[in-house]
């Protein structure tokens, strides 16, 4: 049966409380489809029954799992659109000038999950600077080795392929393999994935022109956020950029960044050229 209003409201309140994300009325379909795997794993007959069961006896693991399922939207390509536009149309051209001597760019996707962000960046760079003979290297890291393995494989289901990927890029960069789609080798070669906890050292990663640190700081407390931001700043080359998630900011957390607006998109530049 479909989610009752009461059940939906309970979920909305939970998600808002734990993550500050607001699910408007009308998003019942989103809740239903996102909670399907959890409900199935729990042996419920449908999502409605699953949610009602947890409403009656809330437990921390279940409510956390629900919040995560509804707030992690990382399975989209070019998530939120505008940051990738800003990257391709403003940041990369600016870097092309700044790095004209080396003709090489390094990007870090610092919460790369199943790889869509990193491969999206690769697509932008491939059709941009790489075609002009530049070298571009993208490093994708995530705390979960499971998603890192999936990202390395570069194989996605049809449902995943429908999520925000422009059709012309799909046909250019992917090939069908059975019921799934596989990233082509020439794109895959641009990206390296590895497991990394953001609370650990970044020393082995090298220096980057751009860091994408989107929608992951939310999982850390203030002190840890500060620590992460200060260490991220140290791996950004002079004149480099950091992208945070749409609702995120360094304000009140770390004042060693300058903020610039590219259209509606905020980018952060290390103050003092990125040195300690």
């Amino acid at each position: 049966m479909a989610l009752t209003t009461a059940a939906f409201d309970w979920v909305r309140t939970l998600v808002r409380k734990e993550s500050a994300i607001v699910l408007e009325p009308g998003k019942e379909y989103l809740v239903e489809s996102r909670l399907v795997p959890l409900a199935r794993a729990a042996g419920a007959t449908d999502v409605s029954a699953y949610v009602d069961g947890i409403r009656l006896r809330p437990d921390r693991r279940a409510t956390t799992a629900i919040v995560e399922a509804l707030t992690t939207n990382e399975t989209s390509w070019f998530r939120d659109g505008a940051p990738f536009q800003a990257f391709s149309t403003s940041v990369v051209p600016a870097l092309k000038q700044a790095r004209a001597a080396t003709r090489s760019l390094r990007i870090w996707s610092a919460a790369s999950s199943t790889g869509q962000e990193a491969y999206s960046l690769a697509m932008g760079l491939k059709d941009g600077v790489v075609s002009e003979g530049w070298r571009a290297e993208i490093i994708g890291t995530d705390i979960s080795s499971e998603v890192v393995e999936k990202a390395k494989a570069g194989r996605y289901s049809q449902l995943e392929m429908n999520r925000g990927l422009p059709a012309p890029l799909l046909v250019r960069h992917f090939t069908r393999v059975g019921t799934q789609w596989q990233v082509n080798d020439d794109l895959k070669r641009m990206v390296r994935f590895q497991q990394l906890n953001l609370t650990s050292s970044y020393a082995a990663l090298g220096q980057f022109d751009v860091v994408f640190l989107r929608n992951v700081l939310i999982y850390f407390d203030l002190e840890t956020k500060r620590d992460i931001l200060s260490r991220v700043r140290k791996v950004i080359k002079p004149g480099g950029y950091m992208f945070l998630g749409g609702a995120e900011t360094t304000l009140g957390v770390d004042d060693n960044w300058d903020r610039e607006l590219i259209g509606r998109v905020s980018v952060h530049r290390p103050k003092n050229g990125g040195q300690a």
């Binding site: 049966m1 479909a2 989610l3 019942e28 379909y29 239903e32 489809s33 399907v36 409900a39 199935r40 007959t45 449908d46 999502v47 409605s48 289901s157 049809q158 449902l159 019921t179």
Partner: peptide, 17 residues
């Protein structure tokens, strides 16, 4: 099975599995 499951998840998420 995968194809049917994806179809069900897309259009029948609001009813029993």
């Amino acid at each position: 099975a995968q194809i049917v499951e994806q179809m069900w998840a897309s259009y029948f998420a609001h009813v029993e599995f």
